[in-house]
């Protein structure tokens, strides 16, 4: 955010500038918190604490309330997200066909838990309920690609395709 003098960056980064613009646009519009948060997340990729603080201040909504909204909706993220999002289905069909084993294997392989991101920001791992591909169970999605009929052994090869 703004206090980047320590890193020698200009005081206001491109992202910060866009946030200011966004807030200026919406400042006086009531009921606008969710769209603002969505757009802010577009800008930053996630919602850093300082951004929430700024949104709260500018829209004059208590920070505690903003935080409540952000944590209520799964679409919002407080931590940086990976370049590739892995969604592991744990719906009934997948569960029956060993979805949990796939999930456990991924956890082990990437050394992260549900909802977490690898330190190199390459992958974020998330569990989801049915994604509508029960015929292919067990299923994962990476970004927009669906991978079905999985066994734990196939995973390493699949992951390798994503940088």
């Amino acid at each position: 955010m703004c206090n980047c003098s320590c890193t020698g960056e200009p005081a206001l980064s491109e992202k910060d500038r866009r946030l200011v613009e966004l807030l200026n646009k919406y400042r006086t519009v009531p009921g606008v918190l969710i769209p603002v948060l969505q757009e802010a997340q577009e800008i930053y990729g996630y919602l850093p604490a300082e951004v929430l603080q700024k949104v709260a201040r500018e829209l004059q909504i208590p920070l505690a309330k903003v935080y409540g909204v952000v944590t209520f909706y799964s679409q919002f993220h407080l931590k940086p997200r990976g370049r590739n999002i892995i969604r592991v289905c744990l719906g009934t069909a997948c569960h029956v066909r060993g979805g949990d084993k796939i999930f456990a294997a991924l956890q082990k392989e990437l050394a992260v838990d549900d909802g977490e991101t690898t330190t190199d920001l390459r992958f974020t791992l998330e569990s989801v309920a049915c994604i509508g591909a029960c015929g292919l169970a067990p299923v994962i999605m990476i970004n927009h690609d669906t991978h079905g009929r999985l066994t734990p052994e196939k995973l390493t090869g699949i992951l390798a395709k994503y940088e």
């Binding site: 505690a64 309330k65 935080y67 944590t71 209520f72 799964s74």
Partner: peptide
Amino acid sequence: GEVQGRFVLDYAHRGFVTRVVPEMD
């Protein structure tokens, strides 16, 4: 919020883990 005007607390998270937390947990 209503008495103190401080708005420090609010609900956060969802479902079974919904809880009241001070701003930003």
